[in-house]
Design a protein around this nucleic acid. Structure first.
Lengths: 251, 251
DNA sequence: ATTCATACCTTGGTCATACCAGAATACATA
DNA sequence: TATGTATTCTGGTATGACCAAGGTATGAAT
């Protein structure tokens, strides 16, 4: 369906062109005049009705695009999108990137998200989730000797945990934060730092997390996951100071 | 200072105009070639170097603007901004507008953030933080009979807790999530649902959280905070189904 | 030499027009 | 009715131009 905008007295709208248009569209979007799935009228017409040129109208539409509010489909039209939190990725990428020193800080947020998610997972996980977790766990065992693939498997397991939590918001935040960590040097290095003593830690810890979820024990699940992060951090810390870490994992 | 972009082999960059430019700028921003405070070269020059027209270049710049990455100053230039979390609010306004059903989900994320933050707070809080928390606590007691002010005081306390955690990432996320919850109907209603039995709950719970932080006990702090949320959720649930909730707060 | 007023250049803000390519649609044909 | 083709519609992009005000250099006045 095409949403025909009721344009009324545009001249008095404050702002200079872009600001005016953007504000107008935002109002329509937030008020609900424009609903997900609606298709805006053609750019030329809309620009004319709003009293601005097409380039300016497009600036506003593009701005709404990066906000995930609308989607401009080539040779089709501009349609209102269903609020999709995934656009947060772009934002977080900018917000936290380039600040290498905040990686540890971002990690804290990831821990926060996962610890909450694992609780929810223990309550909400379905049989399907169990299977996914099982597979992820198996993958970790399989790739235990491959640094790269192992890192991916590790990440996938954690992602499966969060997914099992069934919280869209947590899933989105986790995805965003993971992206940041992935891009960081430390994040990549982490994937490579797999010495022998780490293998059992990796496998056993993840299995315990899995068991806790299966056992529907949120409290224990979080506890185990939290320890998992603590130990991982310990490993990373040792690696950072140059200690080979060939000794046992006893702190 | 003016950041002169080293343009190299632009033709091969994938994407169609806007996408190409946006990707290029994003890469520069993320890589650190462009740092906060830097001023981009004039639009005309930049457009020429990137091989696109000025309108397209402006679309990309405008997109970066809504992401809070750069700031276009009229008749001055485009300068790279320091990551400013405040733009998240504008963003979330769209992302979760009129989607009341996701409020509970967002709340899960808030719980996640705060539970992690309170742990950190118990470890990192300074004397200054203690004072802030003390004041926030006192404010809660003062405004216990005022629904509006009380709601604000409650929020301020939680904010103080997160702040005391000294994690920029958690602070940013908390602020954003709080913004969403504030704007929601349920969020506002929550502030109004202050029946008598809730008063002691409000005061006692927050005091216990405060004590746990003072006592440098992360484990206990999280436990208390989590219970606090659970009870609050219980209150809200009862209010939602119409039960006056005059009974005691026992489970 | 210092101060200050003025003209000039720069730079973002905007508009109008034009062309392209492909999706959507209408229409003619088998 | 089914199908292939021509037309229209729509976004994607490029040019060139004009405006207004911030910056700056110039030069006169002190």
């Amino acid at each position: 369906m095409t949403a025909d905008l009721e344009i009324t007295r545009l001249g008095e709208s404050g702002g200079k062109g872009f600001e005016k248009v953007f504000a107008f569209l935002r109002e329509r979007l937030l008020a609900g005049s424009l609903r997900p799935g609606d298709r805006l009228i053609p750019e030329r017409d809309l620009a004319a009705q709003l009293g601005v040129s097409r380039p300016i109208l497009r600036e506003a539409l593009r701005a709404l695009t990066v906000l995930g509010v609308v989607e401009i489909r080539d040779r089709v039209g501009t349609i209102v999108r269903r609020p999709d939190p995934s656009v947060l990725n772009d934002f977080f990428t900018f917000a936290f990137a380039q600040q290498a020193e905040v990686i540890d800080d971002v990690m804290q947020a990831r821990i926060a998200i996962e610890c909450q998610a694992v609780r929810l997972a223990a309550e909400r996980a379905t049989v399907s989730d169990f299977e996914k977790l099982q597979q992820a766990l198996a993958r970790i065992v399989e790739t235990i000797d491959d640094a790269d693939a192992g890192g991916v498997a590790d990440f996938e397991f954690h992602r499966a945990v969060v997914t099992a939590g069934k919280s869209e918001t947590l899933i989105v935040l986790h995805q965003s934060l993971s992206g940041i960590l992935m891009r960081s040097h430390r994040g990549r290095r982490e994937l490579l730092q797999v010495f022998d003593t780490m293998k059992t830690y990796l496998i056993d810890d993840h299995r315990r997390i899995f068991d806790a979820i299966i056992g529907r024990d949120p409290e224990h699940a979080e506890k185990v996951l939290r320890e998992h992060f603590a130990i991982g951090d310990d490993f990373r810390r040792r690696a950072a100071i140059g200690e080979p870490g060939r000794r046992s994992a006893s702190s």
